[in-house]
Design a protein around this nucleic acid. Structure first.
Lengths: 409, 409
DNA sequence: CAACATTTATAAGAGAGGAACACAAACCGG
DNA sequence: CCGGTTTGTGTTCCTCTCTTATAAATGTTG
């Protein structure tokens, strides 16, 4: 069936087991050798050999565990090597650009976010700005440190295979080869992966945020538009070309307003920032600060603000009901303004879910706010950039740090 | 991360490779040893050993290939053993019951469908009826043949883990333990798997129908209600408890009619059988024959019929646009009445998709009719029942046929 | 009928994890 | 303070599975 139909062999097993260990440490933090034995189901001998290989590749280090008051010989603690692999994470947001250098294991070593001048939307210009940010960050890191990958989050619809942004209304982009532009500007060897910001927000909430271990998770983020990221059985839903999860453009209201995507009655025309502000009689272009003011008014009991949020909450619930019936998720994580207003509109959302979602799936789902803030997409970009290494750690026997690079070259 | 975190070992490789071969033959039909070598990427020696094991378990047979006019020593053809494993497939449809005995590889050996008396909805009664059908079929098969699994398709929402039907409006069921009832009535040892009929229709269209090799496929079937089955990257989307894919209950029209599920404006209230008939001024309870008459009228140019289908097609397109934006599928397969009316409403659907779906995903999707007819869910139930065997053929070294059973017991 | 191409068959080799046993390092109790 | 208990490491040998190498088999082609 599969085109690259795959027979398994010994090396497959090794790769898979190495990957399992690195993933475990990357996602869950340090673990003793014994814990790894328990979690993988492998024998001590096997774990020992695998860890030895990972340590030789400078991906992990072993340390003596401090005494824990339990009998028995202490098991060495294995952790991601803090001087090991790093990636470069980049984000192109509605009105800012950001960059970070993130280590395997998720530690953020350097991070910067700058405003993006309004109207500054050319792809070369943005790529150059990001390259400058990246250079500044890298200058603060040890000489010779080279990212093993570059991840990019962008407010737009992305074709993952080649990093082409097929649609980014906020930037006025259509079929823009962002991946190529960044490759030229950054001048790094590492592979560059581009993805939608909400997809990456979902990924990082799943790995390190509100949805850890959820398995089936729906992430919906309210920004200027509505972004969605879907995790099914632990795997991100990307669709056939990486366009999956654009829940903001579900048609929910056949008699609704025209959306900037050209369609009519999209979900985001009812629950996006602009819709909330419009309902409250505020300037729809006010952006996040204006929304923040609106939410504060609502918290203070201002009627117009409450009505607007009530309206938004109702449509939010309607759309979520749709998604619940389709996906039967265990968890819905609300990010951006949706996470912000959840305390106020939670009951409204729950009411719509009770009314519109099938009872059985409904009973299983919880709605929670995202816990990672503004930088979620940036951190998600880092996760994306680590993916090849996580999938095949042995293929990344990182030739790093001074002499080693020369020796192996 | 995964709870049953899995270290791989040698046996894993063996199981996976055996599974790959059996799947290949089950899905794609007979293949020469060389073809299997090419498709799996394994060596001839490995394939030889694997096939030998499968042949010893009576799962496959090897035959001399007839000469094909090419030089070189001919490669034996491997095929599923026609006297090998079979499953029992059952279906509980709106107004009929069906049963079949299906061999590995998909050959239907016996099949029967009977009307279900209206009002006959008790689970014990239906289970008994199905058991009678099954017994009749089995009496026509060789003595000693025992199904390795039982698959059940039902018009309802099913919790897969235990075969409880949580909701089946057509039967008036709510939280009915169908799996247990069938286990008691059938008196077979084989495991019983229950699933939604549309999910199974999607599965079999993907394996043997209109969506072969599609990878990401959306199956939407118009019956009394609207059923949906979703295949993502070759795997059926089941949701956290098997409730996934209930696209019929997406709220699409906030000012629409009340649905029998209790919600308002569900997709199926706009495009289901009843909606089409209502729009055409026909008795909404007329069922499939009445719909058939409606379609014939439309084909003959009767205005009221054309208007009704136009309405249905428009809403069909609206809902599909939603799903296209969410899933970015490569293919949409329309079954039931939707497949029937596709030639008439195709342009309307395409128009709504053009208008409402994001351009990039839209460009990639094709809409086609299902090719497997009324029995699709039944055949899907067979596929479901074969799943454990396909996943681990070695675990099913079928002790079958006379002496062998005694010898191994 | 000989040359060639392709595949099968068989045996030896290599990679990876499993099992068993001796030893090590912690706690516990007298 | 010292032996007992518990838990875990290190090491060696074993088993499983696929790969590699070589000879034999079975077709087509000229």
């Amino acid at each position: 069936m599969r085109l690259e139909a795959i027979g398994q062999r010994s090396e497959t097993v090794r790769r898979s087991n190495l990957s399992a260990i690195v993933r475990e440490l990357h996602d869950g933090g340090p673990a003793s050798r014994s814990e790894l034995v328990a979690r993988t189901g492998l024998t001590r001998s096997a774990i020992r050999g695998l860890i030895g290989e990972l340590a030789a590749a400078d991906l992990v280090i072993e340390e003596r565990a401090e005494p824990q008051g339990t009998p028995g010989r202490p098991s060495p603690v294995v952790r991601i090597d803090p001087d090991g692999a790093v990636v470069l994470a980049l984000e192109i947001a509605v009105d800012s650009l950001a960059a970070a250098i993130v280590g395997l294991g998720g530690e953020v070593f350097e991070r910067v976010r700058v405003d993006r001048p309004a109207g500054h939307t050319g792809v070369e210009g943005i790529a150059a700005d990001l390259a400058d940010l990246a250079a500044a960050l890298r200058s603060r890191r040890p000489a010779g440190e080279t990212p093993v990958g570059v991840g990019v989050a962008i407010v737009g619809v992305v074709r993952r295979s080649d990093g082409v942004v097929s649609l980014a209304p906020n930037l006025g982009w259509r079929d823009v080869p962002l991946g190529d532009a960044l490759a030229a500007a950054l001048r790094v060897d590492a592979p560059i992966s581009v993805a939608n910001d909400a997809d990456l927000g979902a990924l990082v909430e799943f790995r390190r945020g509100a949805a850890i271990g959820g398995g089936d998770v729906l992430f919906v983020s309210g920004e200027y538009g509505v972004g969605g990221g879907i995790i099914i059985d632990g795997r991100p839903l990307t669709g056939v070309a990486g366009y999956g999860g654009e829940v903001g453009h579900m048609p929910v209201n056949p008699i609704g307003a025209t959306c900037r995507c050209g369609s009519v009655g999209c979900w985001e025309t009812e629950v996006g920032e602009a819709a909330l502000l419009r309902m409250a009689g505020r300037p729809p272009g006010g952006g996040r600060p204006e929304v923040e003011a609106l939410v504060r008014d609502a918290e203070a009991g201002v009627p117009a603000a409450l009505t607007a949020l009530e309206h938004g909450g109702r449509w939010l619930g309607i759309g979520l009901a749709s998604l619940v019936n389709i996906f039967n998720p265990r968890l819905i994580v609300l990010g951006g303004i949706f996470g912000r207003i959840l305390p106020l509109v939670g009951p409204t959302i729950e009411h719509e879910l009770d009314r519109r979602a099938l009872a059985a799936p409904r009973r299983l789902v919880r709605v929670v706010p995202a816990v990672l803030g503004e930088d979620a997409p940036l951190l998600g970009a880092a996760e994306l950039a680590f993916e090849p290494l996580l999938a095949d750690p042995a293929g990344w026997l990182v030739p790093r740090r001074g002499q080693r690079v020369l020796a192996s070259a």
